[in-house]
């Protein structure tokens, strides 16, 4: 019980200090809107086709929303020694890091909702398979957040967190099957696509929004779950190795 008081307090404080700050709200709203608009103009299709763009913009909104804030805030707290205060608290490292990441997960899910809500004004979303879209969004938000955490605990400086984030994010966007089908990528690049969690999330979202998925959905969900577990475990390992050295 006592550990959960700490959990909710950390989550509440992070939400107020980071995720509900005007710059992050505007980032969370404007970024998905800009991506949706960009994709829409580029596709040259009518408003009815906006649904086909949703898997891409939802994925990008989650990926950038989660990694951008978390990677910076955790690095910033480590640098400012406030993270030390958390490490001194009598709560397990696992629960502490879940508290630190839950805000980013919720922020990512909220980001994902922006283009969907916007699309609802212009297109019929009644055929969307929400039963698989929502779990996919949640799992992608968790995997992306843990990727952000992994980045944050692998660097020392705030600027390194941003640079290192881009090292992962941009290849992911272009190789996860959103812009080009994976089957059409050069054969030497193709294996890389399967190393990214968003590849599996995007595949589920394609299916959810009426396009064709390339892998069995069960496998997509299972691999997303594996990415979540592995990234979280690697991040905890890095914290123990680098920050409690």
């Amino acid at each position: 019980m006592k550990q959960w008081i700490a959990f909710w307090t950390i989550l509440g404080k992070d939400t107020r200090s980071y995720y509900l700050k005007p710059p992050n709200i505007s980032w969370g709203l404007l970024f998905p809107l800009a991506w949706t608009g960009m994709f829409f103009i580029r596709s040259g299709s009518g408003l009815g086709d906006i649904v086909s763009l949703l898997p891409g913009v939802v994925t990008v909104a989650i990926l950038f929303g989660t990694t951008s804030v978390l990677a910076v805030t955790v690095t910033f707290e480590k640098k400012g020694r406030t993270f030390e205060r958390l490490l001194l608290a009598p709560i397990s490292l696992e629960l502490l890091m879940l508290a630190k990441t839950s805000g980013a997960i919720l922020f990512g899910i909220a980001n994902a909702a922006v283009p969907v809500v916007m699309a609802a004004f212009f297109a019929d979303l009644s055929h969307v398979a929400w039963g698989i879209a929502v779990p996919a969004v949640v799992l992608m938000a968790i995997a992306s957040t843990f990727l952000g955490l992994f980045i944050a605990v692998s660097v020392s400086e705030v600027f390194e967190a941003q640079t290192f984030s881009n090292f992962f994010r941009f290849p992911m966007i272009f190789l996860c099957g959103l812009f080009f089908p994976i089957a059409k990528l050069p054969i030497v690049v193709r294996p890389l696509s399967y190393l990214f969690p968003v590849t599996y999330g995007a595949d589920v979202l394609h299916a959810a929004f009426g396009a064709e998925n390339t892998m069995p959905l069960g496998l997509d969900f299972a691999l997303l779950g594996v990415f979540c577990a592995v990234l979280f475990a690697l991040s905890l390992h890095n914290i123990r190795r680098r920050w409690i050295a």
């Binding site: 019980m1 008081i5 700490a6 400012g80 205060r85």
Partner: peptide, 29 residues
């Protein structure tokens, strides 16, 4: 209880909020 050589409290929180936050870390209601 640990008091480090440099402050490790949150600059964006008030003094009262900082103490309440630290108390919550120890499970105080």
């Amino acid at each position: 209880g640990v008091v480090p050589d440099e402050s490790n409290l949150y600059p964006e929180l008030t003094g009262f909020e900082n103490l309440c936050f630290c108390a919550a870390l120890y499970g105080m209601r």
